[in-house]
Simulated assay, not measured.
Amino acid sequence: MSLIGSEVKPFSASAFHNGEFVDLTDANLRGKWSVVCFYPADFTFVCPTELEDLQNQYETLKALDVEVYSVSTDTHFTHKAWHETSETIGKIEYVMIGDPSHVISRNFEVLNEQDGLADRGTFIIDPDGVIQTVEINAGGIGRDASTLVNKIKAAQYVRNNPGEVCPAKWEEGSATLTPSLDLVGKI
C-alpha cells in the first residue's frame, strides 16, 4: 500500500537539535512543510555524506518554509556523540530524531526488520501532515538533496494552484499543465 496521500501516523520521540535534547511528536510535522530523511545508522559511511548534503541545502529549504528531520534507529544520545565527534555531522543544524523503538521507521514503512535499521527513505510532507512524495534507496546508494528543492517547489505549486500539474523536470517559473480532455494524446 502506498503512503502517498496518507497522514503521518502518531509517534513520540527524543531528538538531538542544536546541542540539546528535544521531544517531538507527529504534531511537529504539521503546520509547515517537512522533509523526513531516514538513514540506516550513525557512525557509518554513506550516511554522513547524505546528511552533510542535506545540511548544505538546509538554508534553501528553510527559505521554502520547510523543516528537515533526519531519523535513524539510533538513540538521541548516539546522535549527540556523533555530532560531537564528526566534523561532517557537527555542521548539522536540523533535528536528528532517535527511533530505537522502531515506531517511526515502521510508520513510514522503511524498517528493515531483519537488520533493525531504517532504509534510506525520504518523505516530503505537506502542512496538513500528508505525505506527498516518497523516495526509497538501497543501502549503498546515497541521495542527492538538491533534488528535494525542485520536488518541494513542485509540491507547493500544485497545492497552491489546484487543477494544475507539474511535468517532468519542472522548475519554478516554467510551464505547467492543466489536465483536460483536450490534452489527451497531444503531449
Rank of each mutant, 00 (worst) to 15 (best):
M1L: 08
S2I: 11
L3D: 10
S6Q: 15
V8N: 13
F11L: 06
S12I: 05
S14C: 06
N18W: 00
G19F: 00
V22A: 06
V22F: 02
T25N: 14
A27S: 11
N28P: 04
G31Y: 11
S34P: 08
V35N: 10
V36I: 02
V36N: 04
C37Q: 15
Y39C: 01
A41M: 15
D42C: 05
T44C: 09
E50P: 06
D53F: 00
D53R: 01
Q55N: 01
Q57D: 11
Y58F: 09
K62S: 13
K62T: 10
A63K: 09
V66A: 08
Y69V: 09
V71C: 03
S72P: 03
T75D: 10
H76V: 05
F77V: 13
W82H: 05
T85S: 13
T85Y: 12
S86P: 01
I92M: 00
Y94P: 10
I97P: 03
D99S: 04
I104H: 04
S105A: 15
S105L: 03
F108W: 13
V110M: 13
L111E: 12
N112W: 09
E113L: 15
D115C: 08
A118R: 12
R120T: 02
F123I: 00
P127Y: 00
I131W: 01
Q132C: 11
E135S: 07
N137S: 01
N137P: 04
G140R: 11
G142P: 08
D144C: 02
V149W: 09
K151P: 11
K151V: 05
K153S: 05
A154I: 01
Y157E: 03
P162C: 00
P162H: 04
P162G: 01
G163Q: 07
G163E: 03
V165K: 15
K169C: 08
K169W: 04
W170K: 11
E171Q: 14
E171L: 09
S174E: 13
A175K: 12
T178I: 15
L181A: 14
D182V: 06
L183P: 01
V184T: 05
I187D: 04
